[in-house]
Design a protein around this nucleic acid. Structure first.
Lengths: 149, 149
DNA sequence: GGGCGAATATTGTCACAGCAAATACTGTCC
DNA sequence: GGACAGTATTTGCTGTGACAATATTCGCCC
């Protein structure tokens, strides 16, 4: 009647399905909480994080793009919105008038420092707490190749 | 200078980051390929899959929603679009005039059978091939809790 | 059997990601 | 030194997911 093969699937199927569901569920939950307690989206927090960690709190658009999950065109708009609420500021790049660098403001730093702490608690509740330390390591080892390089 | 703590992060951080990136990268790549060779989105394939495996090739909207990654409101529109290209058909539920059940058409079955084979190859290339069998199992074991229940 | 809260599905509206085209500038080739 | 290919970023457009509000029907309770 139904298709047994697709119900059970190849040996890697459960791994893939686990990733999809874990991502979807945890992502949705922590984003909702982040919005609640800090008033920003995960895209904002992600960008702020890259800038906060960058030397001088400053990064060019293309570097910001390369480090994030958003594509090329997406980043322009993300920065538009973060800039509109005063968490970052655009500056021209000396020596290359095509370039734009993005600088995190003091307000942005303060917000980042506050929200990242709560955000980590959120991820711990929605994700980390449900796995053993050995499982954390196993998953990290298996998947690190996807963000390294 | 930069914040060491957030660069390195808590012990589970790499596991979580791995999930996000693996999901984003693999998802994007296989969706692009699916669109190319079969002309449908992953949302379509997912819905077709649930219907194909359901007894009678038929499922109520709410059951379809519950089994998918898309929320409530999304499913109405997904079915709208799949129906528009003739892969599924809406039917009224006998005995409950609020209800709508969705039925996969012959055309839908054929397309599903063809595209799922290619899709599995795509996932194998983008994901499965990069992990060892032991890693598949480890990831599946750690993350199965997110889709079971 | 009429009223009322719950369930089912759809629709309105908004925000945002993705892609391609446009814009602005750089460096180089001849 | 002017044309031209390449680079950096933005903008226009479209599709689609999220959420709230709506319409319709059901089950129940009195």
């Amino acid at each position: 009647m139904a298709n047994e093969a697709t119900s059970v699937g190849p040996p890697w199927f459960d791994a893939w399905r686990g990733i999809i569901f874990a991502n979807a569920k945890v992502f949705r939950e922590v984003e909702r909480k982040l919005e609640e307690h800090s008033g920003i989206s995960l895209a904002f927090l992600d960008a702020l994080s890259r800038l906060y960690d960058a030397p001088g709190g400053r990064l060019r658009m293309q570097d910001l793009q390369a480090r994030s999950l958003f594509t090329h065109s997406g980043m322009t708009r993300v920065v538009d919105r973060i800039e509109a609420v005063g968490l970052v500021r655009r500056e021209s790049v000396p020596g290359d008038r095509r370039g734009v660098s993005v600088l995190i403001t003091e307000k942005g730093k303060r917000l980042y420092e506050e929200s990242i702490v709560r955000h980590q608690v959120d991820i711990e509740e929605a994700f980390a707490r449900r796995l053993t330390p050995a499982q954390h390591k196993a998953v990290a080892d298996a998947l690190s190749q996807f963000w390294q390089g």
